[in-house]
Amino acid sequence: MKIITVEEDIINFLSQIENTIENTIDEVGGVVIFEGRVRRDLDVHSIEYQGDKEMIFVQGEMILKEAIEKFQIIDAILIHRLGYVKVGELSIWIRCSAKHRKEAYASSQFIIDNVKKLLPIWKKEHLQNGESHWIM
């Protein structure tokens, strides 16, 4: 189980932690990876994510623990991007590994839903015209 916040492109970060992700546990029969991305919008230039790392860790751990228990999955990893994120870049990366695909999909959905409800992360849209506002 891992909860990580990064201030660089998640794609680049993933290559650094590749070796630490369990790939070899025999019991794993299905892995679901969810990627959230900053989508293209005519007006939006970039997104700024602000978050309280301490509380992200506490709340993130509660979410992942609950997912692992509730769906009896083998492992879960959650990475959230902070700082400025360009269109097309990843904002979140969730990996659920389970015996079967059903639990892997269900737990992935459970985690992203709870992230949106509980993680203290705020999003500010920076527009092409130079204006910006917090999404509330």
Binding site: G36, Y49, G51, D52, E54, M55, H80, S91, I92, I112, V115, K116, K117, L118, L119, P120, I121, W122, K123, W134, I135, M136
Partner: peptide, 12 residues
Amino acid sequence: ETVMFIPPIAGG
């Protein structure tokens, strides 16, 4: 204690 008032969040 450490207290945080939390405006609507928008992670994910």
